[in-house]
Amino acid sequence: MSMQPDAGGALFPAEPGAVLRERPRLINLAYRFLGSLADAEDVVQETYVRWYAMSAQQQAAIVSPGGWLTKVASRICLDLLGSARARREKYVGEWLPEPLPDRAEWGGGRAEASGDPADRVTLDESVGMAFLVVLEAMTPAERVAFILHDVFRYPFGDIAEIVGRTPAACRQLAASARRRVGAHRSEGADRGQRAGVVGDFKQAWESQDIKALIGLLDPDVTVVSDGGGLVRTTLEPLGGGEEVAQSLLFVSARTPDAKILERSVNGQPGLVVEHEGTVVSVLAFDIVDGRIQHIWAVRNPEKLRPWAS
């Protein structure tokens, strides 16, 4: 049990569960750092292991348990980000962040019953697939400084302690990351428009209407697929409206009994492909001026765990 000193220096128990209530925030933080819910859960578990490994006196000496947990989790993530680049060099094909469904759709609608804080990742712009993909191009220090400051509003003084640099250097890291995001951010459609385009895309795909598909795709559209070497998929990005449309028709011809469902993917309209009752692919979209510029298709079954019914 965590304890805090009173005015006379004696120890008294902290509010029961106060430390554990930090877990949802830590999950949100770690997922944005790593783009993987599984890795985020591991990070948070390790953070709590380190907390409970301390004595009551050591815990009582910590003025802000929440701040301590954030600092430890962020440092673990920073180390993981450094090693992730080497791991992903060995990854088969393209690596994409793990897609998340809406909370109500989590694990077949069991989110409320499970009570697991991991299902409460806040699905805002900072977990959109386009945003997470841009984060992947950043250095670990840029990513940590940017997310902590611009997304979670931590001061640069606190961030400096985490990344081991001066506050001024952390401010520069965040500014550099902000420029990266700005260079890739476009004035996309609102949610209603996105949903309309995705719905039209689904209908054209199901009806095998290649002309309609091409009309919905930007001429320079790109598709990135992540199978992790576990399922059949293209290993390199595919580009061009006609090429992408033809590829989509080829995919549907291979599995004519597959079902295409409209679902929220990381807080934005997307599609889920089911085959024989199993989710086999989750598609996220970047839509600008009524046309699809990017499609991210996650097919690695290890990344589709939250979508299991």
Score class of each variant (00 low, 15 high):
Asn28Ala: 07
Thr70Glu: 10
Ala30Val: 06
Thr234Tyr: 08
Leu148Thr: 02
Gly241Trp: 00
Asp218Glu: 01
Leu29Thr: 00
Phe156Asn: 03
Phe146Asp: 04
Arg120Val: 13
Pro97Thr: 07
Trp51Lys: 05
Gly109Val: 09
Gln58Tyr: 04
Val272Met: 08
Ser281Asn: 03
Arg23His: 12
Ala73Glu: 01
Glu236His: 09
Glu105Asp: 12
Ala195Ile: 00
Val133Ala: 14
Val181Ser: 08
Ala7Arg: 15
Ala245His: 04
Pro155Ile: 11
Gln203Tyr: 13
Pro219Phe: 05
Gln172Ile: 11
Gly164Ala: 00
Arg185Thr: 14
His149Glu: 05
Ile62Pro: 05
Asp200His: 12
Val265Ile: 04
Glu276Asn: 06
Lys202Cys: 10
Arg194Ile: 07
Ser264Ile: 09
Gln59Lys: 09
Val223Lys: 07
Glu15Asp: 13
Arg291Cys: 03
Ser64Glu: 11
Glu41Met: 07
Gly192Val: 08
Arg85His: 10
Leu271Glu: 00
Trp307Glu: 06
Gly93Val: 04
Ala7His: 09
Ala212Arg: 05
Val197Gly: 01
Trp296Phe: 02
Ala183Tyr: 06
Thr122Phe: 10
Gln268Asp: 11
Arg143Cys: 08
Ala111Met: 12
Leu304Thr: 03
Lys303Trp: 03
Pro219Ile: 03
Val121Asp: 10
Arg171Phe: 09
Pro117Tyr: 10
Gln59Val: 08
Val181Gly: 10
Val198Pro: 00
Leu230Arg: 09
Ala14Pro: 02
Ala175Arg: 03
Glu243Thr: 15
Pro24Ile: 12
Arg180Ile: 12
Val144Pro: 07
Val198Trp: 00
Val272Cys: 05
Pro24Lys: 10
Ala7Met: 14
Leu135Asp: 03
Val151Trp: 02
Gly267Tyr: 01
Ala284Glu: 13
Ala308Phe: 03
Asp200Cys: 13
Leu132Phe: 09
Gly277Ile: 11
Asp119His: 15
Val288Met: 06
Gly290Asn: 01
Trp106Cys: 09
Ala212Gln: 05
Thr166His: 02
Leu235Arg: 06
Asp286Ala: 05
Leu78Arg: 00
Gln246Ala: 08
Glu112Met: 15
Ala183Asn: 02
Ala258Trp: 08
Phe201Leu: 12
Arg194Met: 10
Leu78Glu: 04
Glu98Asn: 09
Met129Val: 11
Val197Gln: 05
Asp200Pro: 09
Ile292Ser: 04
Gln59Ser: 10
Arg179Ile: 09
Ala174Leu: 03
Asn300Leu: 04
Gln208Ala: 15
Glu236Cys: 07
Lys211Thr: 12
Leu11Gly: 14
His294Arg: 01
Arg120Gly: 14
Phe152Thr: 03
Glu105His: 06
Ala189Gln: 06
Thr234Lys: 15
Gly115Met: 06
Pro16Asn: 06
Gly107Ala: 14
Pro256Cys: 02
Ala297Tyr: 02
